[in-house]
């Protein structure tokens, strides 16, 4: 192999190595890219209030039982709903209250993530106000009551008579 070929080869090697490193970084860049994509397209929309048609009709013939569930993961908090369940007609708006208490002697922040059963409830549950839209910061020993205002879309399949809404508070890193 002549000297010049070796030189060209090494130049090529460097280019390809740099390209590989860029692609490694691209793997990580996919994370914020997907977040942005979901935010722009409204997929996975957890943090924004829903907009509902004002003239939505209340379906008085049906009554849906909503179980309210509250959990804490990795936080020194107590978290509960003040009613264990409520009954509403589809299309009727309702406000339920939750309570959190910081048991520790330091300031802690957390974010609530909702989950629903059955899973497709997500499509029919319209929330106007929720403590889960923002992070919650609690001072040592602080107690806070927080509302969730929502309706259930009357389009919900007729065979559904009981659903569960669950919130779990996750710890946020200090500073986030």
């Amino acid at each position: 192999m002549t000297q010049s070929v070796t030189k060209i080869n090494v130049a090529m090697l460097k280019k390809l190595l740099v390209f590989s490193m860029i692609m490694f970084g691209f793997g990580y860049a996919l994370v914020p890219m997907y977040e942005k994509f979901c935010e722009v397209t409204g997929i996975n929309n957890l943090l924004q209030p829903d907009v509902v048609d004002k003239n939505i009709k209340v379906d008085m013939t049906r009554l849906i039982t909503i179980g309210l569930d509250a959990n804490v993961r990795g936080l020194p908090w107590q978290f509960k709903s003040l009613q264990s369940n409520v009954k509403i007609h589809p299309g009727e708006s309702i406000e339920v209250m939750y309570e959190i208490k910081n048991d520790s002697d330091r300031e802690v922040s957390g974010q609530a993530i909702p989950s629903y059963s059955p899973r497709f409830l997500e499509k029919y549950l319209k929330k106007f106000e929720c403590f889960c839209f923002t992070k919650q910061v609690l001072k040592p020993g602080e107690v806070r009551r927080m509302p969730v205002k929502f309706i259930i879309d009357p389009q919900i399949p007729v065979d559904v008579s009981a659903v569960t809404i669950s919130y779990t508070f996750f710890a946020l890193e200090p500073g986030k």
Binding site: S20, M21, F24, L30
Partner: peptide, 14 residues
């Protein structure tokens, strides 16, 4: 390979 193997490396690192 140079296009996607580094992405796999990134995935398993995550």
């Amino acid at each position: 390979l140079v296009l996607v193997m580094p992405v796999l490396a990134g995935t398993v690192t995550m």
